[in-house]
Amino acid sequence: MSLSDIWDVLVLGVVLGSLYAVIAIGYTLVYGVLQLLNFAHSEVFMSGGFGGVIALTLVEPAAGPTGLQSAGYVLLGMGAGAVLGGAVAFGLEKAAYQPLRRRNAPRLVFLLTAIGASFFLYNLAGKLFGRYPMKMPTMYENKKLFEVFGAGVSVTQLIIVLAGVLMLLTVDLVVNRTKLGSGIRAVAQDPEAAALMGVDIDKVVSRTFVLGGLMGGVAGFLFGTNLQVDYTMGFLPGITAFAAAVLGGIGNVRGAMLGGLTLGVVESFTVEIWGDAWRYVGAFAVLVLVLMFRPTGLLGERVGRTA
């Protein structure tokens, strides 16, 4: 493998890894506040993809758009993805998890509910939008923009990485610097004490879901732009992102980012060296190895104690 090959493969890995990282945030935030593995998050991600397709199909992007128009379309797609992702996450929490919390249901019930909600949501999407894969309307000419050490970077790839980095920074700021963030951290650390100190737990939990949903929705739109959108698109990226969250240390926001990027890059190099059929073998071997020696993941701690 020559040096420019390595950079090529690295670019592909970082692009994929940014998407995994953004999705992983959703898993890790919810785990932080509720100790719940929200498997329906992969469907929040999927709904973001549909949000983008629907919004862009409605505005019908012009052929041969100007730079400004293209930027508008991309922002619209991201916005629509975020809105639908956030809305689905909000509804999911209200309809599926809040009643369980009120009744103090056992953990296992939460987990089963999450899996059930996931099945329900993707089949609902299949009913509503059809079971054919859909292509994201063309928003710009996806040409090669510039080269990093001989590796070409396309418009889509740049958008994904930029949006990913921006979202990760925002979440990090929100969790560490804002009132909502203190609430999230307080609930993660000790829900009872937080409630006694006057934190409205219901509100914090609900907003945590929405925050994760916004990110997941945008990731769904970006993923759909890179590949295509269909009702089963959430499953594989969802599982991988969940693994990324575990790899980084579930409940740890920065861990999720690191885990996502690591898995993306490992996947890309695995594919380059052993072929596409081995894609997940490399990534999951890394996951198992890390967990063997560091059962709490790369960065370990939970949301509450990190910051």
């Binding site: 592909l12 590949l227 990226p237 991988t240 072929g275 596409d276």
Partner: peptide
């Protein structure tokens, strides 16, 4: 000859190959 499974999340590597 190459194998690229059906549910691949990214065809970038395969296309590069």
């Amino acid at each position: 000859r190459q194998h690229v499974p059906q549910e691949t999340v990214d065809y970038g590597n395969a296309a590069r190959g």
